[in-house]
Design a protein around this nucleic acid. Structure first.
Length: 905
DNA sequence: TATAGTGAAAAG
DNA sequence: CATCGCTTTTCACTATA
């Protein structure tokens, strides 16, 4: 994640920029009948220039301070865009409303910029609005340099300047990755960084200009003369500039003669090797200030001595030269243990995905979704009619949720900690993320997603439990079986959370048509809803030993907010008469779809509680948040939510990404890794029996101001993200095709491999029709787990089978008219809807078995290319054995003791 | 104006 | 010694013609 502050100020900017522009599109700009839009914009530009002439003419008395300057305003500024515009024009300057690349702008005025914009505007002089104001009050053009906004070297200078704080900057991350998202980070920004003076500086820091002065001596030098990648020399060992210009030399022209600058460049490229050795030597020998270059070589691999880890301190002493990112990684990776947990390890993907909680959550969710969808399709038409709600009738929606799911389930194996503060996490390291914490732990302020460091500060006695993914799957299965048994309409939210619409059950009990308001029947309906919830909770408790809570309301929104009140281990029903009061007193961020970003925007316009939203007009909301979000919140604040439970959505995309452990030493490793990612994606596409046409590569790259080693072990740290997407000629699931494009897109970014911190690929799925060649209408075929007579897929066909539809290789199932056995998992092709029979009903109830993703469809398996198949088999073998076997495996993992849970105090 | 591409946000 | 920061959808914005 990039800095939230930057991102936000950007959005603030855009937002304000937007309505500043409002009203400017008067009718005189209306597109001409045939001129098209080019013409429209051309005329608009002319119009604006005419306007400028008017302004200038009316301000003839004012000195032409800005003569020769053409300015453009980016985003939110103080004074506003319009005021700046007027001022600049009045004082003889030119103004461009749009950056069209053709017109030369000499200065861009902005208060702050996102990293993206920094890159985009690299070639411009970017100044603060104060430059304009101050120049006018000074009566002359002040040097723009004093008002520089972007100064890529600044933060590094700050760090170098203040060495002692470098490490603390690296290690002190005020809040956890997840944690930053709640609470008002606006206010915490205002309060300042109490967690340490070196916490990430903001781009808007006013110190910026001060540093820039020292750095760029010439006040008005032509920055266009600098190479795009030029960054000022810094003492702090951040390798981005040097590595980039040296490694990616072909992409970047070397610095042109810029005499005031070149002398400051730390060294010539030739010295690189020696310097590496020197640095390496230092790091190896733990000597912070040694001048001597010894014969230690970066490429020796023999040692494994503990000392190597000391290179992390290569961060601290400013060397005569900083390592390139690749060199840094190379040193890092010399520790074999560490190397094994990075992307350069051939088994990384398999291992990583096995341990990643977020991966599991995502996979489970997708799987549950399609299985429930299949079940819904499976229902007979009579059942369906029964499920169909009367329009306009009252609704009773249950939101059911495990209490601290992972923690609760893991605690079953460690019951002795049940009443002590306990969390589920991978290890006790400072950057280990807390996946789940029980209620005793929450009392200390520990939260999900928090980093261990913080959690231990809050609660030193915290017990750390290992993950137990198979147990989670097991509990989830029991949970869903119980939920389906209610007979309501079910929608999966996640592995431990579901929505159940029990309106029909309740209304039937109430004995009315469900529309009229009748005291008696209303009461009976509500009682029935409570009763269903209670018995459901009992059921789940009996089956899993864990508590679930249930929120009940007349729509999804209300069920969800009621759930908050219900926890832990309880239930709560919001009655119609209390809806407005109840929801009104909630904080806006308690509403679904509102988190720190939207919450922040609302806070800006004075909205803190849901009831405050009701004070605002819909227009205001729409203007602030956009049409959809604005309208949604307008309704939410009044307790309105039209969404229905159980609406089915077809999957639209498949992706795979890794943003942890990404540390490359060279381009080959990056290429190799993205290749294996493509293999992973192919595997997933085959499993879903789908193909994709639009292909996207996503890259996370270390932010220039982020330390080479982020606070979290092997984490991505602060990053800028980049996406590139392309349309493939034809929808495919072919690893080879994907690979080829992925590689070329990766290179297209032109990033030096050592700076990469995350890589992901995604394909948007083709509309079902073309993806399935018309032989199959739904995606539900993926649920075909029926084993048995799977026809042999000829092995030699496999390699190129990628581009033909695997489904074609499957002669029997789509047309098969009858489903063989109740207790088998069968295909639910679309056609089957027509002749489904009541006899299959048991599948909907307790007979249902959910297949979790660790179990692979053998048929799919048979179609995979050999290498993937063997990998998969290995994986499957590892995940299917008994829990004991799994735990045995887990115990090998460092820091996750299973038999001997952490007793340390 | 329509549409495609890009990126942010949210969820668990 | 560490640690496993995924995946999908929706929305908003921008560029483009």
């Amino acid at each position: 994640m990039g800095s939230r502050l930057e991102k936000n100020s950007d959005s603030v900017r855009k937002r304000i920029a937007n309505h500043t522009f409002d009203g400017e599109d008067g009718e005189e700009y209306g597109g001409s009948a045939f001129g098209g839009f080019t013409d429209y914009f051309r005329r608009k530009k002319i119009k604006l220039q005419n306007l400028d002439a008017d302004i200038r003419a009316q301000a003839a008395d004012k000195p032409p301070i800005f003569k020769g300057i053409v300015a453009h305003v980016n985003g939110y500024t103080q004074p506003s865009l319009n005021d700046l515009h007027t001022l600049i024009v009045q004082y003889g300057g030119g103004f461009m409303q749009y950056l069209d690349g053709k017109t030369t702008v000499t200065h861009i005025i902005a208060s702050s910029l996102t990293p993206k914009k920094v890159v985009e505007f690299r070639k411009y002089r970017i100044v603060k609005p104060a430059w304009v104001v101050d120049s006018i009050s000074a009566g002359k053009l002040l040097p723009w340099n004093e008002y520089r906004v972007v100064d890529e070297g600044e933060k590094q200078n700050v760090l170098a300047f203040d060495k002692g704080k470098v490490t603390s900057q690296a290690n002190v991350r005020p809040k956890g990755y997840r944690d930053q998202t709640d609470a008002s980070w606006y206010t915490s920004q205002l309060r300042g960084s109490q967690s340490g003076p070196a916490s990430t500086p903001t781009p808007t820091s006013s110190m910026r200009s001060r540093f820039s002065k020292q750095r760029l001596p010439t006040p008005d030098d032509d920055i266009e003369d600098l190479p795009p990648s030029y960054q000022p020399p810094v003492a702090f060992p951040v390798a981005n500039t040097t590595s980039e210009s040296s490694k990616a030399g072909k992409l970047v022209s070397p610095p042109k003669t810029s005499p005031s600058i070149s002398p400051q460049l730390p060294r010539e490229e030739d010295n690189e090797v020696d310097d590496i050795h020197a640095s390496l030597h230092d790091s190896l020998y733990d000597d912070p200030t040694p001048p001597v270059a010894q014969e230690a070589r970066p490429d020796i691999t023999h040692d494994g001595t503990r000392k190597v880890a000391a290179e992390e301190q290569a961060e601290s002493p400013p060397r005569n030269r900083e390592l390139t990112a690749e060199e840094h990684n190379a040193i890092l990776l010399r520790d074999p243990k560490l190397r094994k947990s990075t992307v350069v390890d051939p088994n990384f993907l398999e291992q990583y995905y096995r341990e990643s909680r977020l991966h599991h959550l995502s996979t489970w969710k997708a799987d549950l979704k399609s299985q429930l969808q299949a079940l819904a399709n499976e229902k007979t038409s009579s059942q369906k009619a029964k499920q169909k709600r009367v329009p306009g009738a009252r609704r009773y929606v249950l939101h059911v949720d495990f209490d601290s799911f992972f923690a609760a389930v893991s605690l079953k194996k460690h019951p002795q900690y049940k009443d002590k503060p306990a969390v589920v996490a991978h290890g006790q390291g400072s950057g280990s993320e807390i996946a789940s914490c029980n209620y005793p732990a929450r009392k200390f302020g520990v939260k999900n997603g928090m980093w261990m460091k913080r959690a231990l500060e809050l609660c030193p006695d915290l017990k750390i439990l290992p993950y137990d993914f198979p147990a989670y799957e097991e509990a989830s299965r029991a949970f869903y079986d119980a939920i389906l048994a209610t007979g309501g309409l079910v929608q999966s939210v996640s592995v431990d959370e579901a929505l159940v619409d029990v309106s029909n059950l309740c209304i039937a009990t109430g004995g009315s048509d469900g529309r009229k308001v009748q005291e008696g029947s209303n009461y009976r309906e509500q009682a029935k809803a409570d009763e269903i919830a209670q018995s459901l909770r009992d059921q789940v408790k009996a089956r899993t030993g864990c508590d679930v809570s249930v929120g009940i309301g007349s729509n999804i929104l209300l069920a969800k907010v009621a759930l908050r009140r219900a926890k832990p281990a309880g239930q709560y029903q919001i009655k119609p008469e209390e809806v407005l009061d109840f929801i009104g007193q909630l904080h806006v961020q308690d509403l679904p779809g509102v988190a720190w970003s939207i919450g922040g925007k609302l806070e800006e316009i004075g909205v803190k509680f849901v009831k405050d939203i009701r004070e605002l007009s819909k227009e205001r909301l729409v203007q602030t948040l956009g049409p959809k979000t604005g309208e949604k919140l307008y309704e939410y604040s009044r307790g309105i939510d039209r969404q229905e439970v159980g609406e089915q959505m077809v999957r639209k995309s498949v992706s795979a990404e890794v943003n942890w452990g990404v540390r490359f030493e060279n381009q080959e490793q990056a290429d190799e890794f993205i290749t294996s990612l493509c293999g992973e994606l192919q595997k997933r596409l085959l499993k879903e029996k789908v193909k994709g046409k639009q292909f996207t590569v996503k890259i996370m790259r270390r932010s220039p101001d982020a330390p080479l080693d982020p606070p979290k072990h092997l984490g991505h740290g602060k990053c800028d993200t980049h996406n590139k997407s392309m349309l493939l000629g034809v929808a495919t699931n072919s690893k080879e095709v994907l690979m080829k494009e992925a590689l070329s897109m990766l290179r297209g970014f032109g990033f030096t491999p050592g700076e990469l911190r995350g890589i992901g690929i995604q394909t948007k799925l083709e509309p079902m029709k073309s993806a399935t060649d018309g032989s199959l209408e739904g995606s539900q075929r993926r649920l075909q787990f029926k084993v048995g007579n799977s026809e042999p897929v000829s092995a030699q066909k496999i390699p190129k089978a990628v581009d033909e539809d695997p489904i074609q290789d499957d002669p029997e199932t789509p047309r098969k008219p009858k489903v063989p056995l109740e207790d088998e998992h069968v295909a639910y092709g679309a056609e089957e809807l027509n002749h489904s029979t009541p006899s299959r009903r048991p599948l909907n109830t307790l007979g249902t078995q959910f297949i979790m993703p660790t179990q692979v469809d053998p048929k799919v398996l048979a179609e995979l290319p050999e290498d993937i198949r063997s990998k998969l088999l290995r994986q499957t073998r590892q995940s299917s054995p008994t829990p004991a076997a799994r735990n045995a495996h887990k115990e090998e993992a460092p820091g996750t003791p299973t038999n001997a849970p952490p007793r340390s105090q």
